[in-house]
Write a protein that binds this DNA or RNA. Structure first.
Length: 114
DNA sequence: TGATTGACGTTAT
DNA sequence: AATAACGCCAATC
């Protein structure tokens, strides 16, 4: 109990993640950058880590800039993320490799992404 | 109160 | 191309 005033950081990240269209992918740096924090990709991961299990946020659509699930599947929830990404209709390998080049989210959500 | 770690990224070697 | 080190800030020990 210390965060009486929730920092916009967390809110911004969650809002952006919630804005990711279905079947689209975003990177931690991308989220952090759009949130207004170009140098805090790690904190983004921290926020996602603190998410509840029943969250509706598509945190599984958030990957690192290389286009694969954090830690290459060594993380305890990576497999969950992979499973969810597959449920989205995306192509994901067992290691969490996905086609970021194809599913890269520009942050326009429904406009002329390109 | 201080030190270490971390769902990462970028730059340098 | 791959590997190393640095940066950033919050949470945890």
């Amino acid at each position: 109990m210390k965060a009486l005033a929730p920092l916009p950081f967390r809110e911004a990240v969650l809002a952006l993640v919630a804005r990711i269209p279905h079947g689209r992918l975003a990177t931690y740096g991308q989220i952090a950058l759009m949130a207004g924090f170009p140098r805090r990709p790690r904190q983004v991961g921290m926020v996602l880590k603190g998410l509840p299990e029943g969250t509706e946020l598509p945190w599984h659509r958030v990957v690192n800039s290389q286009g694969y699930v954090p830690s290459k599947g060594r993380w305890w929830g990576a497999q969950v993320q992979i499973a969810r990404l597959r449920a989205e209709g995306l192509e994901v390998d067992d290691l969490g490799n996905l086609d970021l080049a194809t599913h890269r989210w520009d942050g326009q959500s429904g406009k002329g992404q390109r």
